[in-house]
Simulated scan of single mutants.
Amino acid sequence: MNRKRTSLKTIRAFLIGAGLCLVLAGCRQGPPGRTIHLAHGLDVTHSVHLAMVRMGEDLERLSGGRLRMEIFPNQQLGSEREILELLQIGTLDMTKVSAATLENFAPKTRILGLPYLFRDREAAFEILDGPIGQELLDDGLEFWLKGLGFYDAGFRSFYAMDQPITHPDDLVGKKVRVMESVTAINMIRSMGGAPTPISWGELYTALQQGVVDAAENNPPSFYLARHYEVCKYYSLDEHTFSPDVLIAGTRFWDQLNEQEKAWIREAADNSIAYQRELWALAEAEALEKVAAAGVEISRPDKRPFAEGSREAYRLYEADTTLGRLIRQIKEFQQ
């Protein structure tokens, strides 16, 4: 995303931020020290939120009370895109967003939405916690966003109302909800479906009213959003492994001294390890709960989905930088 295109969005974010200043100003009163304001769009029962609470506790302990954290969950301060814009102008300090949202701000992260990019979860985190992952985290720096690490958001799979999706042919003619992501749109289109961008908060109603026929997400999101009440078929094709990304705004980060940055990095690393443990438990529980609620869970052959989605790779493989990253990831897993 170039700077000209972001100008109008930045103005809109500034206007939103001006109102939020009144809210955040009250949070800055209190004992001496710095209060870090972090916002995200998830429920307070989600593993990411629980990990962020742990991060705040660790940060206050490590800093001896000189750094504290105030967390605003449940989209209290806006959507993921709006929150990123608030980080860019310095109204907000930190957030967690999906890699699909981040790709609109940091172009290299588009590859994380490609289907079947990672062999399994272990390989994914070995790559994301290494030099390739660091390159992706650094991609947002010129857009005033500093990536700090990757939370586990699991594999995304299809769920539908009227029939299980066990082959790409089952997507033909179906309107499939996708995130606001060019990569996600291209993937669904390459499989024969009709990609339909809808915000997460509006998806339950959209499914209920037949605006879309199907959607795709990880098991905890499917369960916590209660989409299993509408969609009784969940097909674990596990087409994408798209992590959540912990981010600080550079306008905030650049104000910190080296000791403060070290405290935040340590607290963030601890929270990431803790969240990945919580995620594994949440994923198992979600599948158990939706099955008990009458959802038919299937594990289709992934090969037809992988073959059907090859078209989604072509544009990115032709790009010098993205093509290099894709090759490096594939070679790492050989």
Rank of each mutant, 00 (worst) to 15 (best):
I89E: 15
Q275Y: 07
S190I: 08
A318R: 11
L86V: 07
S157D: 09
A318I: 00
F155C: 13
L281M: 14
G193Y: 01
P31R: 12
T6C: 11
F252G: 02
P164F: 03
K108M: 10
R251I: 15
L171N: 06
I11S: 10
L256V: 11
W263M: 06
T101A: 03
E80W: 05
D129R: 04
V230W: 09
R34N: 03
A282R: 05
G130I: 15
R34P: 04
Q208P: 06
E229N: 02
G210K: 11
M94Q: 04
L87W: 01
M52I: 08
L114C: 10
R327K: 10
M187A: 09
E180I: 09
S79M: 07
E103M: 06
K261A: 13
K302E: 12
E283S: 13
N270I: 00
C231G: 02
R81M: 00
A106C: 09
R5P: 01
E103N: 03
G56T: 02
M55Y: 00
K261P: 02
Q88P: 01
L207E: 08
N270F: 03
S298I: 04
V245K: 00
A25Y: 03
I16M: 14
L114F: 10
Q208I: 11
L224F: 14
A291S: 14
R226Y: 08
L24G: 04
A306F: 10
A99R: 00
D93W: 11
G210F: 09
G140W: 04
R265F: 10
G56Y: 02
Q334E: 09
